[in-house]
């Protein structure tokens, strides 16, 4: 039987949007999505899709992308399909409107994984660029009771095990685990592939499976949020930059050195 791989992908606000467009609604404690800037697939999740597709290229695999959210930009969320994933499962419900609670999100995603019959390998991004939580994948692994390897920069399946080059502060380690397993990946994995025209055509024809919360059979008490958000604000910057000028750029550089010397910094 072909290897079954799930990739967990989140739709997020474009983290590269200009700072000026970043606004918070203090009342609802939410970031207001700027109307002119479309959401994106979380960057590390595109790395995760790429990791899955490399395994598919090498050994053959059925790749399912799974996402949870209150609503989706379908053209954006079809990107994993146009890159080469086989299926898209959207867990869509107004109840998923507050996705900053890792416990809630992991419970829902783990239930979907179970409902889909389980996977040999689940690949996730290292963190979502909205709440920068870096918790959901580890939680999914715990809830499913599968092996967990985080911060992969290379992921290979060899027979019944996964072999991961895992980032450490001064290099990497090679870690292996028996399948089933969950792996998170980082941008060091390398550029995600661009969708081909053929991929885009195929993706347009594919229909995502859409499930609501009630389709998943998660017990209510398991969805009790574990974190309360009291406030959300834009931090104030009080710094004033002293601009150093000179006759030309090199002279400005020299003056900068003098200035830092005066300030006893060098």
């Amino acid at each position: 039987m072909a290897l079954k791989i799930a990739v967990l992908v989140k739709q997020v606000l474009d983290p590269e949007m200009p700072v000026a467009a970043f606004r918070i609604d203090a009342g609802t404690k939410r970031v207001v999505p700027p109307p002119s800037i479309p959401p994106v697939v979380n960057g590390f999740d595109e790395n995760a899709v790429e990791a899955a597709l490399r395994i598919k290229d090498a050994a053959g695999a059925a790749v399912t992308a799974i996402s949870m959210g209150p609503s989706f930009a379908l053209d954006v969320m079809k990107k994993p399909l146009s890159m080469g994933a086989d299926e898209l499962v959207l867990l869509q419900d107004q109840a998923f409107d507050n996705t900053s609670d890792a416990f809630f999100t992991a419970q829902v995603l783990a239930s979907a994984v179970r409902k889909l019959g389980g996977f040999d390998l689940i690949i996730c991004g290292r963190q979502a660029s909205d709440w920068d939580n870096a918790q959901v994948p580890l939680g999914v692994a715990e809830l499913l009771g599968v092996a967990c390897i985080s911060l992969g920069k290379k992921v290979e399946v060899q027979g019944a095990k996964v072999v991961v080059e895992r980032l450490i502060p001064d290099g990497y380690e090679v870690v292996e685990a028996s399948l089933p397993a969950l792996v998170t990946v980082s941008n060091e994995l390398g550029q995600p592939r661009y969708p081909t025209l053929r991929g885009i055509m195929a993706a347009t024809r594919k229909r995502p499976t859409i499930w609501k919360l009630s389709d998943l059979g998660v017990a209510k008490e398991q969805l009790q949020p574990r974190i309360t958000l009291h406030n959300l604000f834009v931090p104030q910057r009080s710094k004033v930059c002293e601009m150093i000028e000179g006759d030309d750029a090199a002279d400005a550089g020299r003056k900068l050195a003098m200035k830092l010397r005066e300030a006893k910094l060098i």
């Binding site: 606000l13 983290p15 700072v19 970043f22 918070i24 970031v31 900053s100 660029s129 909205d130 709440w131 920068d132 009790q224 949020p225 574990r226 974190i227 309360t228 958000l229 009291h230 406030n231 959300l232 604000f233 834009v234 931090p235």
Partner: peptide, 14 residues
């Protein structure tokens, strides 16, 4: 810090 440091969230544990 959340949103890459563009915002700060004040949270507590339940």
């Amino acid at each position: 810090p959340v949103y890459g440091g563009n915002a700060v969230a004040v949270v507590s544990c339940n």
